[in-house]
Design a protein around this nucleic acid. Structure first.
Length: 277
DNA sequence: TGGCAGGGGTTGA
DNA sequence: TCAACCCCTGCC
């Protein structure tokens, strides 16, 4: 068992915030079991220390959980907003993960009209059916090439329903080179979002999630029904109708600035788990 | 036990 | 703008 210091970090908030779907919590041992860059590992937090075992390195853990001083510095740049301040207090230690990009694409294509446990189940099925057994246990997440070889019927066995067609087309778009992930680095976030939306099953919401959780684009602002609800309730309580997606996009830029994605992360997780109703 | 509504979007008409 | 898309869960 190895350890590393992780002050101002909460493993539990970070892994239950709907950013990543390859982790499972074992309440009896207090360990989270999952994968970092195809490395199976078990991690437990005790105060400000992380104890872990598996084939993962300390630096991989630091990169995955954004355990860098830059993160703390970034938080200081968030606006002084009463709701956001409350959210930051309630879900203190929540950080943005840095997920593998292809796994992130697949997770969020499968996330439409699905709840977290179902997305986790699809991730497990994809690994066990179409990944490879890893030397230290567990299964790799299949790459685009492996998925592109499959049929829609194969993918439907992972209980993803109509999303199978989307996932298969996307895997083939990537495998044939019709879509190039590395383009993202050369584009600003709005352009990168449009680039991602060339992939089948990727709309504005899924594209923003991919940019935020796999490309560390902290100005990406995913708007789902929860964010729409919280923006309405917290920021426009007098309006009868919920603000439109376009209005929320505009307001979030003005109100939260270039780190609006981090603001979204805190508000979303707080609203879903601790917001008093 | 079974029927029904609804859910963390996207597509295509 | 809106129905259709699958499957799972919670509720009655």
């Amino acid at each position: 068992m190895s350890s590393l210091s992780a002050p101002d970090f909460c493993l539990h908030h970070t892994l239950s915030a709907g950013q990543t779907f390859c982790w499972q919590f074992a309440p009896d041992t207090g360990f989270w079991q999952g994968y970092i860059l195809q490395n199976p590992c078990r991690i437990r937090q005790q105060d400000s220390s992380l104890h872990f075992e598996g084939s993962v390195t300390k630096n991989q853990i630091r990169d995955y959980f954004s355990l860098h001083p830059a993160w703390t510095a970034r938080l200081k740049q968030l606006p002084d907003d009463p709701h956001l301040n409350k959210a930051r207090l309630h879900v203190h230690g929540l950080r943005c993960v840095r997920e593998d990009w292809f796994e992130c694409v697949c997770n969020f294509i499968c996330s439409s009209l699905k709840q977290i446990p179902q997305i986790q189940s699809i991730n497990r099925e994809l690994r066990q059916r179409y990944g490879q057994a890893l030397p230290h246990g567990g299964w790799s997440f299949p790459g685009p090439q492996a998925l592109a070889r499959l049929t829609e019927t194969d993918l439907r066995q992972c209980r993803m329903g109509y999303r199978a067609r989307h996932l298969l087309t996307t895997a083939r778009q990537i495998d044939t080179g019709a879509f190039d992930w590395h383009q993202i680095a050369r584009l600003n976030t709005d352009e990168a979002s449009l680039h991602l939306q060339q992939l089948r099953g990727v709309g504005p919401k899924v594209a923003s999630c991919i940019l935020l959780y796999a490309a560390a684009r902290y100005d990406a602002f995913p708007v789902d029904v929860w964010v729409q609800k919280l923006m309405h309730e917290l920021y426009f309580p007098k309006r009868r109708q919920a603000p439109s997606l376009k209005q929320i996009d505009k307001i979030s830029r003005l109100h939260f600035g270039p780190l609006r994605g981090i603001a979204q992360l805190f508000l979303f997780h707080w609203y879903r788990t601790s917001y008093p109703r």
